[in-house]
């Protein structure tokens, strides 16, 4: 790299001032030691080990799908926060706000990136699972991390599902109507599921359409104001929060279970 070799760059000079040293402890990693130190010193780079066997770096082995899933998650977080500035989760405003996001807000691409990113994340998470299966990486000692991964996969789809309702268009309410009626068919705790009538005492039914699993999900007896608000809160705070926790455990376990899998 001729650029780095031709004397000190401006950045390198900055790294030697007191401010530069305070921020970038390692400076530009040129020698072996610095390349190790930069991985150890940074909080984000510390996600990775210092060295890896060569196969673990090859794209044809990992497909990069796990890392990309995380990256798309971050993109979705950023675009999602930006969307929240303009979107109001009420039956009266929701649909109009979505149209305004396109027509009245500069850079009307935010919703597109968010929506297509959501699709992309489902795809990358699936392909990541597929790769992990094909390399047998769920085998001991990584069994538990596979379990965490399955939970993350389900959470990804739930995130996408709760986001589906928010535009409040025909596609949204009917997809959620069909989806939430399945919850109403849950055995024992759904009003139209098997066994609900077993929980009655005499003539008093405890599981009715206003006290079953579907109601808890929708906050009402049909997809309306309550459902929109509940899905909004779950989509923006509830599920991402749970997902973060599982992601932390997932990444931690990747390192603790011996890094990326490989032949022993």
């Amino acid at each position: 790299m001729p650029y780095f070799d031709s004397g000190e760059s401006l950045f390198e000079k900055f790294c030697k001032t007191q401010v530069g040293r305070a921020i970038f402890r390692t400076g530009i990693p040129r020698n072996q030691r610095q390349r190790m130190m930069i991985m150890l010193n940074g909080v984000f780079l510390h996600l990775h080990p210092v060295r890896l066997p060569k196969h673990a770096v090859k794209v044809k082995y990992t497909w990069c799908m796990g890392g990309l899933s995380f990256f798309v998650f971050l993109v979705l977080t950023v675009t999602g926060i930006l969307l929240m500035f303009y979107y109001r989760p009420t039956v009266e405003y929701a649909y109009g706000d979505i149209i305004d996001l396109k027509e009245q807000v500069p850079l009307g691409l935010m919703r597109e990136i968010h929506r297509w990113g959501a699709h992309l994340m489902v795809v990358t998470v699936w392909l990541h699972m597929f790769r992990v299966f094909m390399t047998g990486s769920y085998k001991p000692p990584r069994e538990f991390n596979w379990v965490i991964g399955v939970i993350l996969l389900v959470l990804t789809m739930l995130m996408s599902f709760t986001g589906y309702l928010l535009p409040w268009d025909q596609l949204a309410i009917w997809a959620i109507t069909v989806g939430s009626n399945m919850a109403g068919a849950t055995p024992l705790v759904g009003a139209s599921g098997p066994g609900a009538s077993l929980l009655a005492i005499g003539d008093v039914n405890f599981i009715t359409s206003s006290s079953d699993a579907r109601f808890a999900m929708l906050g009402g007896r049909f997809v309306g104001e309550g459902a929109l608000l509940r899905f909004y809160v779950l989509h923006c705070i509830g599920l991402p929060f749970v997902m973060m926790i599982f992601m932390i455990v997932h990444f931690w376990r990747v390192r603790k279970d011996g890094g990326i899998s490989g032949p022993t």
Binding site: S210, S211, F215, A216, G219, G220, R221, F222, G224, E225, G226
Partner: peptide, 12 residues
């Protein structure tokens, strides 16, 4: 918390 999910009055 579970009971919290079921409001006493529904504005429907």
């Amino acid at each position: 918390v579970l009971r919290y999910l079921f409001p006493n009055v529904l504005f429907e």
